[in-house]
């Protein structure tokens, strides 16, 4: 059943923040924490990781599959509607029958989450930024950072840099080279085009483009081959969500190193640890959840199959949870 309700922000509390409701869920924040309540329980979490997770969930349009904010709270994307859950993918909550889930129209839950971000993100705090590149999320209400929380995710239609597609990044367009990528070569390819073929003969410096990313853990679409999407991203510190796959996803490590903790999607029980160094290629099966740790800002190519049929095929057992068997 799809729940429908309005996202209502109350008058500001003593800390300066509005509170919000979505169906049977309520959200309130103070200087340090978010307090979430639902009919069968409640949850308290530090506000900084909560806002970072909420930011990704909104920016990614609830992404592919499950976005676990932590071990209790998260969302499941049904591509049109979205589940908001508490304890649904926590073995102890499930066994105690304390888990709770409500389904909402996509636009309703997105508008509510956007309203929370607009009110709860203070001036100077950027939920997309690495910890050393942003101010504090904590404290009393202090302005806002709407330019940061309303960023549009890059989604090229064919390839970045083509005419009428997503533009390249430069100092002039507000994308300086990140402090950890100052040694990345910025030279552009030499492209010799015959007249009339300007829309097809094209190339760009992929690594330089990534070195100028102003966000972390935010895959953007850079090239498109039918449903095959190259979604590179730059990673630093910890992936703010624990992603539960509804399809096979691939990671191609382009630079430096990331360690992935891989747990079972349903129960959260540990399954593996995957260490990826430059050049490594690893699948993430469709029945796991994963969280990455990147000690230095690194370049990761997330490779997705955007087919709308895949989640259903896998859920019905008509497609495997792994990409190949050998």
């Amino acid at each position: 059943m799809t729940t429908s309700s309005l996202a209502l922000g109350t008058e500001p509390n003593e800390h300066g923040y509005r509170s919000f409701t979505l169906g049977g869920f309520s959200f309130e924040r103070d200087e340090y924490f978010v307090h979430i309540e639902w009919p069968t329980g409640r949850h308290v979490a530090a506000i900084e990781p909560f806002l970072k997770a909420l930011m990704r969930d909104v920016a990614w349009n609830f992404f592919y599959g499950t976005v676990n904010f932590d071990s209790v709270i998260g969302t499941v994307n049904h591509y049109g509607t979205v589940d908001l859950f508490a304890g649904r993918f926590n073995e102890a909550y499930r066994m105690a029958e304390l888990d709770h889930l409500e389904n909402f129209p996509h636009d309703e839950i997105k508008q509510t989450f956007q309203a929370i971000l607009a009110d709860w993100v203070n001036e100077g705090f950027d939920p997309f930024a690495a910890p050393q590149e942003t101010g504090s999320a904590y404290g009393l209400k202090n302005g806002d950072n709407n330019s940061a929380v309303t960023r549009e995710r890059v989604t090229a239609q064919r390839m970045v840099g083509l005419p009428n597609d997503e533009p390249l990044r430069s100092d002039a367009s507000g994308y300086p080279v990140n402090r950890m990528f100052l040694d990345v070569d910025q030279s552009e390819p030499q492209v010799e085009v015959e007249p009339g073929y300007e829309k097809e003969v094209s190339a760009f410096n992929f690594f330089a483009y990534l070195s100028r990313s102003d966000v972390t853990w935010n895959p953007s679409v850079v090239s498109v081959c039918r449903d095959s999407l190259m979604c590179p991203t730059t990673e630093e510190f910890i992936l703010p969500i624990i992603h539960g796959n509804d399809r096979v996803e691939w990671f191609i490590q382009l630079s430096d190193e990331i360690v992935w903790e891989v747990n079972d999607r349903e129960t959260g029980r540990p399954r593996a640890k995957v260490t990826m160094k430059a050049g490594d290629c690893s699948a993430m099966p469709a029945d796991i959840r994963h969280q990455g740790f990147s000690p230095k800002r690194s370049m990761l190519l997330v490779w997705e199959n955007n087919s709308a049929e895949l989640p259903g095929l896998i859920a019905r057992g008509e497609a495997p949870t792994v990409p190949v068997r050998f």
């Binding site: 990345v184 552009e188 094209s202 190339a203 410096n205 992929f206 690594f207 330089a208």
Partner: peptide, 9 residues
């Protein structure tokens, strides 16, 4: 197209 390290075409 002349491509170097990290270039995509």
């Amino acid at each position: 197209i002349h491509l170097g390290h990290g270039h995509m075409a």
